[in-house]
Design a protein around this nucleic acid. Structure first.
Lengths: 159, 159, 159, 159
DNA sequence: TTTT
DNA sequence: TTTT
């Protein structure tokens, strides 16, 4: 009936872009999300949560996300299952994202990976504004929502 | 960058369906949402939160929601402003919903409003499945999401 | 950094209440949450999502939730793992709930399971208000939040 | 019954820390949250959403947030009203936050506002970990949740 | 199998 | 292993 997830965390690896037989883009990555408390040994653990994105958003994620980057993800929990080679049923729980926000650009923070933007030249506040290009394919605005509604002017409001 | 609201509460009145000059359906209603604590006098207060829905979802809400019904709403906070007749700027905060779930049908609970369904005949578990008709217009499935993605078979997964 | 889940669905079975060696109450149940679209065969599938609650909330859930009931759950995704008897690492993903809302009482809807409340005795509007007692243990208000803040009067606001 | 908001946006000004007559800390700030679409003139608008935090979290926000910084906020919508000097009832809608994440430190991004940390001193990568001190009061870990539960070892799980 |  |  309702199934909504919002996560903020860091990618444990570069995202993996694949295509279905029908040619639909899918990318998979895992977010490490720190738990809001410490364990018995006083350490902060993290949950490693698999995220899947489809189509345009998949391409964008593959282009702009990298290992270690901070991202916000909105989506729903999905549980699928398959039988492994030992004949055991395996359950896979993933977050199917419909909105991903890049909270760090390649050049923000300390993770300077040779994008050629000098330290401190950090631009206008960074990453979340995007547009620095250089990905595997070309997009207009990688920071747009996926399939969100179009504007209706407030002035039209009949109230 | 990210703006997500989820509410569960009861309608304070019947929803109001209007149309913009351009003919787009909008419906407005207010949800009373009980606060999760009691005030100094030991009473539970509620927040009265205005909700706006557009287009198809607006029609559906107008058809199926009524004063007192329990509903879940998903959307985003929007703040608009206008100048009132005293020349003061007035700010209006509303939740623009993109998903509404009807958690009570006309015949569930005690709010029997003459739908002609006997107490106890409660049907197949109620409200959230809808389809009992009788609204201002005809819909196929009022309990569908608004603009949510279509299925891609898990079997196509390239992982 | 941030990990928030909100679900509305139905219990697939009665909840299971256990106690840790240290005597802490835990209850586990699974929510069936309908997907917001139909699959290739035109059928609506559901995700079956395991939910875990602790302490007071665990007791309350054990007392008031039953198979088939509609509930709203707020919490975070947690992933734990263990090695099974074949020496394979198994990952378990659960929603650790910190807030559960009972959207249907024993006597609302049609699912009369012998709670001893007559069909049609529909009560005062149902379930979410609770207090009809009869559970495995005694609670004051089973519909309170778990560990949420206490009121501070708006009148004290220094703004 | 349920009231949950998650926002990511930028502070429009430095936060304002006040104290109630009873000495409880409150801080107020406004988040600018870009809308997920463009308006009729092709421009991206933003919603300016007032946020209120209390007690320890209020102190932390006052210490670590500044105009222009990116933050994630979790909380609930609250509506209060008062009568203004013209005798008109004014409604104020605010997000009462119970969790705030600082997505940018003083030294990440370009918004160096004289915190005394040199531009380009990029630090340890980042903001969300905090600990660079210099605030109005001293905290242990400003990036902890406010009132979230303490760990119970998975190994105790009776399932 | 994990991020900072 | 699943709910309506």
């Amino acid at each position: 009936m309702l199934n909504r997830v919002i996560l903020i965390g860091r990618l444990t690896r570069d995202p993996e872009l694949r295509y279905t037989p029908a040619g639909v883009a899918v990318t998979q990555f895992t977010l490490a999300v720190d738990r809001p408390f410490s364990n018995n040994q006083g350490q902060r653990e993290a949950d490693f949560i698999p995220v899947v994105t489809w189509r345009q958003l998949a391409e964008t994620c593959a282009n702009y996300l990298r290992k270690g980057r901070l991202a916000a993800v909105e989506g729903r929990i999905q549980v699928r299952s398959y039988d492994n080679n030992e004949g055991r049923r395996v359950y896979v729980t993933e977050v199917i994202a419909d909105n991903v926000r890049f909270l760090e650009s390649a050049n923000s923070g300390n993770r300077d990976e040779g994008m050629g933007m000098g330290a401190g030249s950090g631009g206008d506040g960074g990453g979340y504004r995007g547009g620095y290009g250089g990905g595997r394919s070309q997009q207009q605005d990688p920071f747009q929502d996926d399939g969100k509604p179009i504007d209706i002017s407030d002035d039209d409001l009949p109230f």
